[in-house]
Computed example of a mutant assay.
Amino acid sequence: MITKNELARVVGPRLCCKTSELAALIKMDGSLQINGRKIALSIANHNAAVARKVIKLSKDLFGIQTEVLVKKKVRLRKNNVYMVRIPPQPELQKMLIKLGMLNGDGSFQEDMPEGLLQKECCRRSYLRGIFLGGGSVNNPGGTYHLEIITGDGRHAEAISGLLQQFGLPARISSRKQWYVVYLKDSEQIVECLNIMGAHTALLEYENTRIYKDMRNKVNRLVNCETANLNKTIDAAMRQSENIRVIAGSIGIEKLPHSLREVAELRLHYPDASLKELGEMMDPPLGKSGVNHRLRKLDKIAEKLNSGALFSVPVKSGRNRH
């Protein structure tokens, strides 16, 4: 809603841009009523600002007189529908021909009006009109998603092609009787908002996106640290249990000095890291050295648990391993 309100206030710099945007709005939301040789046109939209833009463009470009009807939605708290109706009048058929809705002979033109899309400024305006007529962009606090909905498969292909001209690889999916042209990459959505002229919405989107990305990064770091901490705690508990097995079977005092020292430190400091254990040894020992000795203790405990005969040669001195 915020994005559409902003885009509804954006005015194309040239007459051709305004014409292209009005053509897109009518292509997306318009319906013709034909009674004999009389033609009327209705454009329906859920946004009041968009309806006002249709009225203004129609009057400024073609001097068209319009009527406005508001249909209130009471079920499920849905938005009102604003119906801009253009009753039969001589200027209407000329307008429809100019907008590429009708051919010169009065027959219908179903394709996108290529004659209005020769300039880049006009393509930007047409894309803005398409979005105002059937587009939406979600809050980037959730998943990134911008979509444009149309009931015409050929028009969906044309919209996708228009986005691709701006380097935006849009995709198409079907949803019941509708065709959905969408972008899911955050960078592409930001670029699309920029192309249409929604600069304020773009900045708000970027701020929310950066906050979300930072929050996710922090969560990943916290989860990683938590996982590492859990591994450290589990390893320390296993090491302490194995040392108790050794103490109950052969006694820690029977171990070589290098293993006895690290075993006693682990029992006294069950929460200490390998680095901290190494710094408490005399002389200090690095993490890999401490880990090597604890692995030796693990192997001794495994053999004792398996019931294998095991003897530990008592070594004198202060060998590293």
Rank of each mutant, 00 (worst) to 15 (best):
Q164R: 11
A48V: 12
H257G: 10
P13V: 07
K315R: 12
L297Y: 02
I2D: 10
R293Q: 10
G317P: 01
S306C: 09
N35L: 09
I97F: 09
I148F: 05
R238E: 15
C121W: 04
R293G: 04
I130N: 04
R215K: 15
G197M: 01
P113C: 05
I159A: 02
T200I: 11
V54G: 00
K231G: 12
I233E: 11
L221E: 12
N207H: 12
R123C: 07
G129E: 02
Y144S: 14
R9S: 14
R244D: 09
N139V: 10
G12Y: 10
L267W: 02
L163C: 10
E114G: 06
G115L: 14
D60W: 03
M237S: 08
G251E: 07
R128D: 01
T143E: 08
N194L: 13
D271L: 13
T208F: 00
Q165Y: 07
V245R: 05
E264H: 11
G100Q: 02
K119V: 08
K72T: 13
C17W: 09
L32G: 07
Q93S: 08
L15F: 12
R171C: 04
A263L: 01
N291M: 08
V218K: 11
V54N: 03
L277F: 03
V11M: 06
G133T: 07
E302Q: 15
A272Y: 08
F108G: 01
E241W: 15
I210V: 13
L57P: 00
G106N: 10
S58T: 06
I246C: 00
I64N: 01
G167F: 03
P283I: 00
Y182D: 01
G133P: 10
L162H: 00
H321P: 08
C192S: 12
P113W: 00
R244T: 08
V218N: 14
D213K: 14
V218T: 13
G289D: 07
D111L: 14
A24F: 02
N216E: 13
E302G: 05
D105S: 14
L309W: 10
R244Y: 06
A23L: 01
Y269C: 13
M214K: 11
M280T: 07
K299N: 05
L229G: 10
G63I: 03
I246P: 00
L32T: 04
G141Q: 09
A236N: 15
S160T: 15
N305R: 14
Q65C: 04
H257K: 12
G251T: 07
T66V: 11
I159K: 04
L102E: 07
T200A: 09
E253L: 12
I39D: 04
Q33N: 13
L193T: 02
V181L: 03
C16W: 11
Q177E: 13
I210Y: 09
I210C: 03
G153H: 09
L127T: 00
G167Q: 04
A236E: 09
R244F: 04
E225H: 12
I172Q: 00
G142L: 04
E206N: 08
K38Q: 14
T200W: 06
D60L: 05
S316Y: 09
G133W: 02
G63K: 08
I172L: 02
A40Y: 08
F108R: 03
K18H: 13
E204P: 02
G248Y: 09
S173P: 06
R266Y: 08
V262R: 02
L116C: 07
G151V: 07
I39R: 06
S174I: 08
M214I: 10
S288L: 09
E91Q: 14
L15I: 13
T208Y: 01
V81S: 15
L132D: 13
F310A: 02
S273N: 01
